[in-house]
Design a protein around this nucleic acid. Sequence first.
RNA 1: GGGCAGUUAGCUCAGCGGGAGAGCGCCCGCCUCACACGCGGGAGGUCACUGGUUCAAUCCCAGUACUGCCCACCA
Length: 834
Amino acid sequence: MARWLESGALRGDAESGREPYVIAIPLPNVTGSLHMGHALNNTMQDVLIRWHRMAGREAEWVCGTDHAGIATQAVVEKMLAAQGVSRRELGREAFLGRVWAWKEQSGGEIITQQKRLGCTLDYSRERFTLDDGYADAVARVFVSLYDKGYIYRDRYMVNWDPGLGSAVSDLEVEDREVTDALVSIAYPLSDGTGEIVVATVRPETMLGDTAVAVSPADERYRHLIGRTVTLPLVGRELPIVADEYVDPAFGTGALKVTPAHDPNDFEIARRHGLDEVSVIGEDGRMTALAGAGYAGLTPLECRVKVIADLRAADALRGEEDYTHNVPFSHRSGERIEPLLSLQWFCDMGTLAEPAIAAVVDGRVRFTPERFGRVYLDWMENIRPWCVSRQLWWGHQIPVWYRGDEVHVGTAAPEGDGWVRDPDVLDTWFSSALWPFATQGWPQQTPELARFYPGHALVTGRDIIFLWVARMVMMGIEFMGDIPFSDVVINPIIQAPDGRRMSKSLGTGIDPLELIDQHGADAVRFGLLLMASTQDVRFNEQRIQQGRQLATKLWNATRLVVDRGGRAGGVTPEPTLLGDRWIASYVRNTVAEAERLIAEYDFSALADLLYRTIFDGFCDWYLELLKVGEGTPEVAGFVLEQLLTLANPVMPFVTEECYAQMPGAAPEGLLRHSLAVGPWEHDEMARVQGMWLIEAVTALRAHKSENGMRPRDPLFVTLEQRVPFALSQSAVASLAHVSWVDTPADDARSLGLEHGRLLVSRPDMVVDTAAECARVDARIAATATELGRAERQLANDKFVGRAPEHLVAAERAKAARFVAEIAELRAERGRLGCS
RNA sequence: GGGCAGUUAGCUCAGCGGGAGAGCGCCCGCCUCACACGCGGGAGGUCACUGGUUCAAUCCCAGUACUGCCCACCA
C-alpha cells in the first residue's frame, strides 16, 4: 500500500490526455468505521477503478467523509454527558469547537481502514462535507434553489422527533406495528339534538380538534353537514365538514380533525380552511392552547387525564385494542410526533422531471435493472423535502432575519440587527452535491471539467432515495448533466443465520478482524464471490477460498520462476500442446473477464479467476509444463497475464508475486496492461487438450475405483477414431501408465469421446464374475441412454422442429452409444461371460 | 393494501428452454521434486407445490404455499 501511495498513480491527472474513469465513493460518516457493507461496496469499486486504470484510463476515485450531522453531534454530546456537560450549557460556538476537535482527533478512522482493504482511492484529494469550499458550494445551491422558487419556508406538518428535538424527513421514519387503545368519544351536536361518535388512538389530541369530517356520500350524516358539534372538555364549536378522505365504512364513519397533529387531518384542514390549533409543542409537552389543567403535561400524561375527564363528563362511548402502524424515528428510535412547525422545504417536482427522464431514456442505468423501477416509482410520486434540522452541527442555513425582513444569501447582509437562522441543513442536502462539489464547483477547475460526469456509482439500495436520486437531480440542475452513467446496487450481506448484520443485535462481523485472520486479498475475494444480485448470508468459507487462491498464486509463481519463467518478455509463439492449450484458454478467460466487468458481475468474475488459476493453470497447465508439454517462456508470460488479470481482485498477493518475477516492471501492476492480443482462440488445441484431460482422468479414475494406488503400474493401448494425436507421453506421466502396442486378452475398455483405452495390470487377478457384472452394468446404462436418444430421434416433431445442430448432436450420440455397446459386448466375449 | 426478490446436493450459493454445477462438509487414496492452505478419485438433488405453453421446462406463463425486503395517510 505504501508503494501505491507513493507512486502517484492514485491521483487522477486532469491534464493527462487519457480518457477519465471516475467513481465517487459513497461518502462514509466521519464517525464511521468499516463494516461488512463498506468492505464489499469498496472492494467492488476498487476492482472497477483498478481494472480501468490498468486498461489505460485516467482513474479518479473520489475520497472523503460526510459530516453526518446527527450521528456526529450525538457522539460528541455523549462524550460531554459523561463529563456532566450539556451542549446547551456550552453554547453553540464552544460546542462546535468541541465537535471539530473530536473530528480532527478521532474522525475519519475509516480512511485508514480503507487503505487496509487495499482501496486505491485518491487520498491526496480527500474531502469533507464541511470543508470551506464544500460549505460554499452548499450555500450557493441553497440560495440558487431559493431564487428559483424551489426552496420556501412554511409552517407545515413535519415528522417531529422528540428524542432528537428536531424535524426529520419522511425517509428517516419507519413504521412499526403497535397496539393502542382505540377510544370512542361522543361529540354532542351544538343544538342539543344528538351526538356524533368519533374514534381515536390519540385522545389527547382532541384538545386540538377544529372540525369533524364525514364522507359526502354518507347518508347517515348528510343532514348534519354544515352544522356544528361542541368539543367536550373544551367547549369549542366545531363545524361538520364533508371530505372524500373519510371512509364511511371505518368505525362510525365520522372523523375528528386535528390539523396540527395528524398529516391527514392537516390536509383536510387546508382544503376546508380550518383553524390549526397546536396543542403539543416542540418540547414534547402540551401547550397552553391545550387548556389549563393540561398544559405542561406530556402527551401520555395528558391522555390519561383526558380519558378520566371524558369519563366524568359521560362522553366516553367505548374502548378497544387496535393494532396499527405508527411512525418511529430512525434516528432516535422514538415515536414520531407529527406537528406543525416552521421549517424550510424544497419542492422537488420540477427537479425530478429531468432526473426521471435520465433513467427512462437509459442515460443512467441501474444494475440490477429492477432498481431503476424502484427509483422511478419514488420519483414519480415525490413530495416536498423538509431540509431544515434543529441541530448545531452542519451547514447552517444561509438565511438571516430582521423583524419581518428575510435575507437569503451566501453572506450576511449589511446592517445591524440581523439574526441568522439557527437551523442546519439535512446532511443529505450536502451529500447530494458530492459528485461536483468535490471537484471544485462552483469554481471552473480542470478537475471539474475532466472528472464530471463520473461513470459508476456503487451503493446500497437503502440510499437510492436518500442519496442517489438527489445526486441525479442536483447534478442535472447545477451541472446540466447526469453525475454518473451506471448505478450498481450491491447486495446486503446478512449474518450467517440470515438476520441483519448489526452492532446492536450483536450479529455484526468485523471485516478488519477477517483481514487480520485471512488477509485483505482473501476478504476481498470472498466478499465478491458471495455477492450476487440478491442478498446473501455471510459465509466465511468463501473468505478461506480466497486465502487458498492467494496461497496458490504464490506457490505457482515459485514454480514458474524456478523453471526460468520471466515477466516482461515479448509474446511467445506457443508450439507445444500444453502451451497452445493454455494460451488459447487464457485468451478466452480474459475475454470473459472483460465481459463480466462490463456487466458488473463480480461474483462470476471471482469464480472465473478461481477456476482459471486452480483448474486450468495449476492443475493442468503447470503439470503439463513439468512433463515437458510447456515452455518457461509461455509459462512466464501466462503467469504475468494471470497476475494482471487477478490484480484488481487480489491486489496485494498479485503485486508481490509479480515483483518476484525476473523482468517485472519496477512500477508494478497498477498501470500494467493485459497483453493477450496476439493469441487467438485455437480450436485444435482446445480439442486436443480436452482429449488429454479426458484420457488422464479416465485412467486415474480407473485406478482409484479398482483399489489401485496412483503409482501402481498399468498397461494401456490406444484405439482412436480421429486423425489427430493424443499426447501419449504426457498421459503416461500424468496418469502413471505405460503404453503397449497390443492389449492383453483380459484388457478392460475405457470409452472416450475420440476413441477408447484398453487397460490391464500385470498383477491383476481377474474375478470373471465381477468383471462380467461390471460390463453388464455399463451395457445397461449405455442402452438406457441409447433408448432415450432413439426415442428423441423417432419423434418427428423433434426432428422437424428442433434446431438442426441439436438433431445432429443427438444422432452422433446415438451412434456413439451403439459403438460403445458393441465394444462392451466384445469385451464380454473376451471375458467369457455367460 | 400495493410492489420486488427468493425457494436447486448436508451448508452457503451459481445456472435460467435441449442429458443438474461450485466451494465447504462427507467417503476413499496419495507427503508425486510449487503448494497437505495441497493432489487424485467418489458418494450425495422427484431443481417448493399445482396447472399451462412447447417437439422439449429447473429454466417461460398462471396460480398456491412459505421466507425476506421496499413503499403506503385509513381515524
